[in-house]
Amino acid sequence: MPMIEMKNVSKWYGEFRVLTECTTQVEKGEVIVVCGPSGSGKSTLIKCVNGLELFQQGDILVNGISVGDTKTNLPKLRARVGMVFQHFELFPHMTITENLSIAQIKVLGRSKDEATERGLKLLERVGLKEQAAKHPGQLSGGQQQRVAIARALSMDPICMLFDEPTSALDPEMINEVLDVMVELAQEGMTMMVVTHEMGFAHKVAHRVVFMDQGKIVEDDKKDAFFGSPRSERAQQFLSKILHH
């Protein structure tokens, strides 16, 4: 059973169709990179996986559980799916430690001590242990994004979704975030990553999904995608993004 299975997902904003029959899957331990021009529906697609965006047709199964089924307990499902956002979205009024422990306590029912210990361990892992008592506004963008990754990991997720995790970062901070993600990938975490970082895709992705105008145009093994993309649109996209 795939970790994430997407079957003919379509979505409309009123009359406007943003996703058209998107079908793909992510196996356990697999890393897939979703790329494509802006406005192609990548972010919308990844937000459908944990039900942050609703879709009108098709279905998505996460670890066998249907996201589209109205009877599904979405908070319970989301608690096991880690998500990292473009703009970090740490909770600004909480310290870093509180950011890392609040959901463990309120959602998973862990004790405060247990949650704090687990949070600090993950914070150390992303190299920010000394920032534990600070607030998000006191950290750089790259540091905030690493905390956001640690926060998602604190819930012991079965898979991780990344929605353009480096797009809002200064160039010199991109690598510190990518390094953490590469490490995660190498440890066997199941990951679905929307990104334009083709270096990251080269290094750790198993498959690349290319989207254009709400459709999955290409869904191929990494080497096949970079070697000889079949669609003209993907060829254009790659030549622009790789040779700038």
Partner: peptide
Amino acid sequence: MAGLAMGF
């Protein structure tokens, strides 16, 4: 979205 994504 961040709150909901944490399982709240």
